[in-house]
Design a protein around this nucleic acid. Sequence first.
DNA 1: CTTTAGCACTCTTCGACAGCGAGTGCCAAT
DNA 2: ATTGGCACTCGCTGTCGAAGAGTGCTAAAG
Lengths: 348, 348
Amino acid sequence: MQEKPIDARAEEILKKVIVNYILTGEPVGSRTIAKLSREGLSPASIRNVMADLEEMGFLAQPHTSAGRVPTDKGYRYYVDGLLDPFRLAPRDRALIDESLSRVASEFGEAIEIIPKLLSRLSSQVGYVITPPIRDAVLKHIEFVRLHERRVLCVFVDRSGVVSHRIIEVGEEYAQADLDRAGRYLVEEFAGLVLGEIRSRLVALMAQEKAAFDVLLRNAINLGTLYLNAEQDERRLVLEGTANIMKHPEFADMDTMRRLFETFEEKHHLVKLLDRCLDASGVRVVIGSETDDPALGSLALVASPYQVDQRSAGVVGLLGPTRMEYQRAVALVDYISRLLSSLLTSPPH
Amino acid sequence: MQEKPIDARAEEILKKVIVNYILTGEPVGSRTIAKLSREGLSPASIRNVMADLEEMGFLAQPHTSAGRVPTDKGYRYYVDGLLDPFRLAPRDRALIDESLSRVASEFGEAIEIIPKLLSRLSSQVGYVITPPIRDAVLKHIEFVRLHERRVLCVFVDRSGVVSHRIIEVGEEYAQADLDRAGRYLVEEFAGLVLGEIRSRLVALMAQEKAAFDVLLRNAINLGTLYLNAEQDERRLVLEGTANIMKHPEFADMDTMRRLFETFEEKHHLVKLLDRCLDASGVRVVIGSETDDPALGSLALVASPYQVDQRSAGVVGLLGPTRMEYQRAVALVDYISRLLSSLLTSPPH
DNA sequence: CTTTAGCACTCTTCGACAGCGAGTGCCAAT
DNA sequence: ATTGGCACTCGCTGTCGAAGAGTGCTAAAG
């Protein structure tokens, strides 16, 4: 950022190299660029520029006598300033509109469909990450006695997402008590965010009324037990991981295996995606910028989506650094906007 | 089966070839076998036998001047009659016991842990398939109004498995009505299998009482709406798919991709596993026996598990046909027995 | 009749080597 | 500043030959 030593011509050439490389997957040489350029520059001149670009770290050569290939830094520059505007094909748009309109505002369903959609339309890996439970809005909560000390807690979010967890309780509850406690919590706190509910429960607990009212005490107990655990937990849904194998740059089984292991773990990915939560629009993370060696030659296109104007989760896709960024960005942008509007405006 | 043209010696040799191949992954020649055999047979004699075995389809040669490799038919014969008895290492046993005892009889948790366990202990792909919803035993059911015509139905099985689905209702319900209907269903039918509940509901519907009792009518309506859809649905959990890539026999990206696509679809796998449901113990399906070209060089080790003496679902693992069958079989057998006993005996 | 030693044959693998083609860097001329 | 020319560097491909592993067949031995 401090130095921006690229003049218009170099920029032009860098862009041509990258576009060409994305298209063909093969290192591109000066001759190729010369032919493409209507400016009529000779290969030799272009070689000079390319040598400069290499020196500055935007391009690299796989070996001495090969053409140039973009580096992560090169892609970065390209994505930040050289992207051609791109409009989604009307049929793609229509497909998205139609698929998403069917799930209406039920986030629980959207979450299954969106990654598939992204994956299909991009031939890459699509994903959605849900908001943390902390931000879920209580619609319904229910406690079910499994045996003595184990209680299943089922939670339903306003947008129809169901999550559940088993909690270990200190004393034994009858199912009827559990029912009452659940109903109490719903009546009292429906419409509030879980984080908020949690702090209110803590406040209630301090009041002396809680010591005498059994119903209240139970509700507080169960509620806090449920709310205390893993409030940051988010669900990540990946779809189309097999698509990664279409790309020749992953011929090596070993890196491929490590890649799929991180797919299975999800843990790292979630952490990575968190970084994209606060972005204001589509964000692209390229190769080494991920700080994860297993994702070395992958790029991530991510956009946060909003629920009621608040940034909630992230949707996007994942593919080789050599991907059609314009298309990917347009796609992710469109879907995230649509999703946000579905989750925000409609009557709940 | 009709012809069993293998004498003791041929059997011995077949076994040695297979064991050796499983061990090394390389075609095994007559010399190797000669050295292994304490009978002191010469390579030439062994060659004759091997030629016979090849003619009968138990062995094959990758090319004319290579050693022999087992065919699927060869593995089949080996698995059916030549397996050495195998005992799990005590530490493996202990690990399994400990992991499973912690989830007690909560099937909902076991289902997450078991495939991981299988995968870790075998370095292959572990899986569990759940019983179809039809066989689930009602513990709790709950209807939550999402909007006008859409109702979320949350179902809890006796063993703590939660499943849910959105249903479209004909008329609009108030949440209070939904609550009552849910409570009614639980009171009336808790402890029964869903399939049974469904037929009872159908019977009730015919009675005229249903026409007048609003509560009853609602319960019947909602209950049947929920129960009508996809009663055969089963959940398949796969874990450790990345392990497949460790095996050199899958160097080819294209078959690998198709394989992972079937992993993602799950559909085919479920169908395949259904065939193992009625088996009385561990069952092995080898390569082409799967009738799925994408699974061409995979073998499946599967064992049904029981819930209350009834065959319910299947656990097992998935790996290359060249796998240590004894170990795999022992592992799957042990886990399925343990799981069955956890799901059957304990106090519910 | 079974077993085995011997031998010719087949195929893969590996390294060496050469030729081709693509592309570069540099220099000198424009 | 641009460009034509040229030597050079690599990777890729194909060929060749030698080595090695393993086979099938035949004829001799048990």
